[in-house]
Simulated scan of single mutants.
Amino acid sequence: MSDMQHLLIIEDDARLAQMVGEYLERSGFGITHAIDAKAGLALLQEPGAGPAPDLVILDLMLPDMDGLEVCRRIRSLPGERGQLPVLMLTAKGDPMDRIVGLEIGADDYVPKPFEPRELLARIRAVLRRRGAGAQPAAKMMRFGSLEIDRDARTVTVGGKPCELTSYQFDLLITLAERAGRVLTRDQIMEAVRGRELEAFDRSIDVHMGRIRAAIEADPKNPKRILTVRGVGYVFAKQQD
């Protein structure tokens, strides 16, 4: 049981949280449910308040605080807590919430209503991406002042740390490993997420914007991650 991965569900719909929690428990996860933002943030901010989660399932429509603000506060937490994968539950037909959520640091989203199996698949995909960073063969990658430590899953520019989500780190690695090669959005999604999920194509562009904001001196005129119109993206070999 010590190897069980734990999920924190921040959801004010008690019936939905119970249904989802029971399904995920049958799938081998430990579950903690917080009924609102205050309770959820308290569990994350106070050591010993509950089991340390491996992933947060966050509803965007909470009674006491906007879910986007909750995501921002999670990302501002110190150390590993601020890097916890966040999977958002969003209202169906509201793509702006999804886009904004990805921009502020969420790793993935599932629109309501959803099938529990899809939620489970997305949770496992996010956790696989996080776990993939612990491979012992990983090495430091350097591109001028940009350094990517695949062991520690950290990125620095000129020695200063860059804040990236787990998904954004994997996107950056996918491009950096293929420096000089143009990748389509489909190729990038396949490399990072696998084939089992239907991806939201625009999310790649949102995440690339966040990565550029973190690693580029001038995100509006990028030198590291270049857009190839009508095709996709390329990571420039020659930098600074």
Rank of each mutant, 00 (worst) to 15 (best):
P63K: 12
A179D: 05
G28Y: 13
L7S: 02
I31R: 06
E147S: 03
P222D: 06
E69Q: 10
P222S: 04
L77P: 11
I211G: 06
R150G: 03
L197I: 10
P136Q: 02
R128I: 10
G82S: 00
Q238Y: 07
E177K: 08
E22F: 04
M140C: 09
T156R: 07
A176S: 12
Q238H: 14
G230D: 10
I215R: 00
N221I: 00
T174Y: 04
P78D: 10
A106E: 04
R81F: 02
V126T: 13
E11G: 09
A138W: 14
G158M: 00
I148Y: 03
P161W: 00
E177Q: 13
L68A: 07
V86M: 07
L41C: 05
R150P: 03
G105M: 01
L55I: 05
G30E: 04
A52R: 14
D97I: 04
K223F: 00
R150F: 01
A37E: 06
P85A: 06
G232A: 06
A137E: 15
V20S: 10
Q187G: 10
I188A: 11
R142E: 07
T154C: 05
L24G: 08
R193P: 00
Q168L: 01
R142D: 03
I123F: 05
K223I: 02
V70W: 03
R124Q: 15
V157H: 03
A49W: 02
V126I: 14
R178N: 15
P161I: 00
D151S: 12
D36W: 04
D201M: 14
I204K: 07
R124L: 11
I188P: 10
P95S: 09
K92E: 12
R72M: 05
V126G: 05
E25S: 15
P85D: 02
I9V: 13
P63V: 09
R72Y: 01
S27L: 02
M65D: 03
S27H: 12
I74Y: 08
G21M: 05
T184G: 14
V155H: 02
A132D: 15
E22V: 12
R181D: 13
R202I: 12
F200V: 14
M19N: 13
L58G: 08
A176C: 05
I10F: 07
P95Q: 07
R185H: 13
K112G: 08
A91N: 04
D186W: 10
K160N: 04
E22Q: 14
E80M: 09
L197Q: 10
